[in-house]
Design a protein around this nucleic acid. Structure first.
Lengths: 213, 213
DNA sequence: CAGGTAACTGACCGGTCAGTCAGTAATACG
DNA sequence: CGTATTACTGACTGACCGGTCAGTTACCTG
């Protein structure tokens, strides 16, 4: 006995997985793995809890899918970054950080980062996926760029992997800061501004001679 | 009917809270708030679960106490850092990072950091305590030192708060890296080495003139 | 417009765990 | 030594939540 024309649900097998993963990403990023409720994820995705299990075997499986999805677009970014700048190191440093900063502000990297850090202890294989498929690639690429610049005599001696770490750390901490302390009333860091100043500092700290203007 | 001289437990009201908090710190740092079991914390502290409730009203209360305790020794570190180096900025930068690195390796800062980042969304008031009582002080002190050095003409123009962020970020990321990716087989960063190289880079990046040897 | 298929629902189950409390035993004290 | 006090124990409870499944309903096909 239901009013005509308003079906209780629609059958949309193709779209469900994506919608569910998107809802799960939001929930996990907000609350972390353990505290996120499947019931709530289902509600956000506009389905019942049971429907989740038509597409994902377990909560961990869903988490895995979320991490995978959160990786894919970022990987593309990394690849693009490498491909675009074979030129002199000073030029790379001038362009890349701002681009990264923009992406960190656009994609929900902060939430995912928080999640990976927070749950790494309990779900090591997810930390492994995140590391092997994304972090290692990105760091490796940056590392190679630094090493190449050193070989060309542009950059001072020093461990290239550590240089890579130095380059990205303030941006990552800015994002973590935003997720952790801003909701609590702490003053924000403007990721763009941090990127600019850090680039400036690192340029004059790493280069063997003053960069051309 | 129990063998003589071996009491089932001792009454040690004074020592219990400290022991329980220490056990809880270890458990929370290892597993995070939600995944840590009160039963296990009690066992580590050598008491039954019921005993926890003689000293702490709820699990959250215990978490609060852990955060508070984890703050205290670090606060002392911050104060010492400020007090010890009114001298020229280059000298401060030469000594402080290595000292910080040592402390990051000694105290269980990594676990606590992970915990605060991971649970900030679910327990905002704890992030607030951590920020107001520790992070803000530390960052503020470093910020003041930078600003003073700028006033003396030692350090280039730029936002001092951002400079402070740049200075500490790689060390923090190193520690987070250790907690997150090393257990999964990722290559480690030697925090000491990172501290040395970063100090070097930042020195020549921030100072208005080459530092005296 | 049947009849069949499978996407979807939602009440339910079993396990887990924070929190309780009646009882027990260690100590303080007279 | 006896007795009062209270730190402490551990079996228990109630709520919650991941996961299940019998039933329901949208949609497809002839």
């Amino acid at each position: 006995m239901r009013s005509a024309g308003a079906p209780r649900f629609r059958r949309r097998k193709a779209d469900r997985p994506g919608e569910i993963v998107a809802a799960a990403l939001a929930a996990f990023a907000e609350k972390g793995f353990a505290a996120a409720r499947l019931e709530e994820i289902a509600a956000r995705a506009g389905v019942s809890k049971g429907a989740l299990y038509l597409y994902f075997a377990t909560k961990q499986d869903l988490f895995r899918a979320v991490v995978e999805q959160a990786i894919a677009p970022n990987m593309e970014v990394v690849r693009a970054m490498i491909a675009a700048h074979p030129g002199p190191f000073s030029e790379l440093l001038r362009l890349v950080p701002e681009r990264i900063a923009t992406l960190l502000e656009t994609l929900p990297v902060g939430g995912v980062l928080k999640m990976v850090i927070g749950e790494a202890g309990n779900f090591p294989e997810l930390a492994r996926v995140w590391h092997d498929r994304l972090v290692a690639h990105a760091l490796g690429a940056l590392c190679d760029a630094v090493a190449a610049a050193q070989a060309r005599g542009e950059v001072k001696a020093g461990d290239p992997r550590t240089y890579a770490l130095q380059l990205v750390s303030p941006l990552l901490i800015s994002v973590i800061w935003r997720e952790t302390f801003e909701p609590v009333g702490a003053a924000a860091f403007d990721v763009q501004a941090v990127a600019r100043q850090h680039m400036q500092t690192m340029l004059s700290g790493m280069l063997t001679q003053e960069a051309p203007p």
